[in-house]
Amino acid sequence: MDAILVRDVHKCFASVPALRGLSLAVSENSFFGLLGPNGAGKSTLIGILAGLVRADSGEVRVCGHEVVRDYRRARASLGLVPQELVYDPFFTVRELLRLQAGYFGLGRRARPWIDELLALLALEDKADANMHQLSGGMKRRVLIAQALVHRPPVVVLDEPTAGVDVELRQALWALTRRLHAEGHTLILTTHYLEEAEALCERIAIINRGRLVALDDKDALLARHPYRLLCLTLDREPPSLPDPLRARLVERGDCQFTFRLDRHGDPVGAILDQVRALGVEIVDLHLEEPSLEEIFVHLTRESA
């Protein structure tokens, strides 16, 4: 069974389309990245999963439970860390966590787990502080604790690392990896592509409410069949022969970057052609494409 199933979902706000026939599935126990530029529809999709937004049409299931008809089980299966730092200023951290556990039907038996969560997120000494006394990073951690309070099998984090410092980001990465290792399904949105590259096993890219790519991260990276060869020469060569000029993407002071087809352009042949110009190669390195280039390529293509 899929942790998340989304089939042909449409959603318009007034007349603005946010999702236009989106379909995707997230298998159980995967670490899933949901990427896309601002306004792509990521938060809208997440809102539909959590019951905050109602789809105009299509089918959406969380752990097999349809999100409107079977909302109790669907919501019990999902923990949402919202994109915005929202909180109720009337209550302390511990009170908020107890209330949240209560909404999910858990009474006192959630208390040991709440203590554990406070420890896990390094919030113990802030447990009795009011939310408005906490820094942004601490508030973010409270939001995460709130999402985990009912031990949901699926955890959705909407840009959890936006605007957090290096230390907290590392801590969040470690926490998400731990949750994943413990068997949770994780869904993460982020604008830091190196983050998605480091954490996620499978990635969906959406743009303007449509899916533009859905693949395993490695397959997605391999899909881009280019790599870049960057050379520094000892002096300017007279002029480049046609095959080299066709592959040149950037040229600086004695610096040349060539884009090579992963399969059709052996590096040795290119180097031979350069040496045949009578220049020496001072330095050389290869750049593999990153998710960022693939992202830019795919979202530009679909625009």
Binding site: A50, R72, R73, E84, D88, Q100, G105, Q146
Partner: peptide, 17 residues
């Protein structure tokens, strides 16, 4: 207040009818 502040989401995501 909960609507404007955004914290109504915590009630809305819960399994409450």
């Amino acid at each position: 207040q909960s609507k404007m502040n955004g914290n109504l989401v915590f009630v809305l995501v819960a399994p409450l009818s």
